Simulated scan of single mutants.
Amino acid sequence: MQNASPWLSLTQDVSPRPGLGQDVSPRPGRMQNASPRPVRMQNASPWLILIQDVSPRHGPRQDVSPRPGRMQNDSPWLSLTQDVSPRPGLTQDVSPRAGLTQDVSPRPGVTQDVSLVRREHAQEVSCVTWSPVRSHQAVLSASWDGTAKQWDAGSLLCVQTYPVCAGRVYDAAWSAAEAGQFATAAADGALHVWSAAAGRRPVLSVRASPAELLSCDWSRYSARQLATAGVDGCTRLWDLRDARSPLVQLAGHRYAIKKVRFSSFDSTVLATASYDKTCRLWSCTEARCLGTLESPHRAFTAKLPDTDAA
């Protein structure tokens, strides 16, 4: 047969040549066997012949029975990853071991790990802030349980509890000029100024809003200026030397103001974030809005960068 494959032509030329008589007669003592070898398929392609001879060889029997914990699979590679059954003496133990139980109870004379949880407030903690004065290593927290707490950053112990009001305390802000002095904004609409030296009583109280007071902030450039904002949608600037009325009142938000923050770089600018999905920049000296940032979020909160930010 005429074929373009050089491999097939080697096996297909079986015609007798002139002068070379084909001797196919059986010889004495030799059985004539023209059948293909066992399990080897007669194929003209040498490549198929190589992979089709998979018959077991004489010798040890091939054990293909499934082993315990090993799935029977024709692929040798899959079988490497499928043996995940536990072996005797190698059971997986994820139970806590004796002597290695987790114990977070304080021990006498042992320094507490900073990752330990301190549970002092009775309700949700709404605010936590570090003292900006380097020499005063303290943390301040405010809670819906009506209190503010001062913590020692080294021992993680509550050193003082301040009873702010009967309702919720939403925000607290340290003074950047005087160590241990801070202000709180609470649900009773009052702005309270506290001092660690004065104990559990505020040094100044101002009726800052007719509704809930949600946020307060201390100016970084003036030790006597505070800003407050709340549910009524107004921002007010206060001078603690005469707090009978606000210095400036800024209105423009349609809903409650969640946060108010002074600029770290300009003493006359502050920012507010409201539930109306906007953030506004204000000029304290001109009492006007400098710009509005729209937000697609349901609640918008913003914080101006710190003074030491690059």
Rank of each mutant, 00 (worst) to 15 (best):
S283A: 04
T272S: 04
A273I: 00
F300H: 14
S295I: 11
A273C: 08
T292Q: 13
L304C: 11
T285P: 09
R280D: 03
T307V: 14
C284P: 02
T307R: 13
L304W: 12
A271V: 02
V269Y: 05
C289V: 04
V260Y: 00
K277E: 00
L281P: 01
A299I: 14
A302W: 10
P296A: 14
K303T: 15
P296S: 14
D306T: 08
G291N: 13
V260T: 06
A271N: 01
R261E: 06
A271Q: 01
F300I: 12
C289E: 06
C284V: 11
V260S: 00
L270A: 01
L270T: 04
F262W: 09
T268H: 12
S283H: 09
S267F: 06
T285R: 10
A287G: 11
C279F: 01
H297R: 15
D266R: 07
E286N: 10
E286K: 11
A309L: 04
L293N: 12
S264Q: 03
L281T: 04
S283R: 05
D308R: 04
L304H: 10
C289H: 03
L270Y: 02
L290D: 13
R288N: 12
L290T: 13
R298P: 15
W282G: 02
A309F: 06
L293Q: 13
T301D: 14
T307G: 09
T272W: 00
V269E: 03
T301G: 15
R261C: 08
V260K: 02
A309Q: 07
C279A: 10
A273Y: 02
R298H: 15
D266G: 07
C279N: 06
S295F: 08
K303M: 13
R288S: 08
T272M: 00
